[in-house]
């Protein structure tokens, strides 16, 4: 399939929108890191402190998602001039 010609540089607003989407894609890795970090101190932690840590990370992630929800849905509503945000793949015939 023809690869679409994407602009090489973007205006400030579109640039921000792209970075916002980058953060959105990064979130699961951030979350996995935070939730799997306790593996490092396995056996030496107390339940109470572990609980506080996990709920703190959890709360921060939820806060991050909630803060992003507004801007990202607005960004989604506006047409992106590139027309694409997913990664494209080309199939070899």
């Amino acid at each position: 399939m023809a690869r679409e010609v994407r602009p090489l540089f973007l205006a400030r607003q579109s640039y921000r929108r792209r970075r916002l989407m980058d953060i959105a894609r990064l979130m699961p890795f951030l979350g996995a890191f935070g939730f799997l970090l306790p593996v490092l101190w396995a056996g030496s932690a107390r339940t109470s402190s572990g609980m506080i840590y996990l709920f703190a990370v959890w709360g921060l992630l939820i806060l991050g998602l909630a803060l992003m929800a507004g801007p990202i849905s607005r960004a989604e509503a506006e047409p992106d001039e590139s027309g694409r945000d997913g990664h494209e793949e080309t199939e070899e015939p």
């Binding site: 799997l36 396995a42 932690a45 339940t47 109470s48 572990g50």
Partner: peptide
């Protein structure tokens, strides 16, 4: 919690 039987976080990494 600290006084309960589950006061130590028995985290098994592979299970976690």
């Amino acid at each position: 919690i600290d006084a309960s039987p589950i006061d130590v976080w028995d985290l098994q990494p592979e299970r976690w």
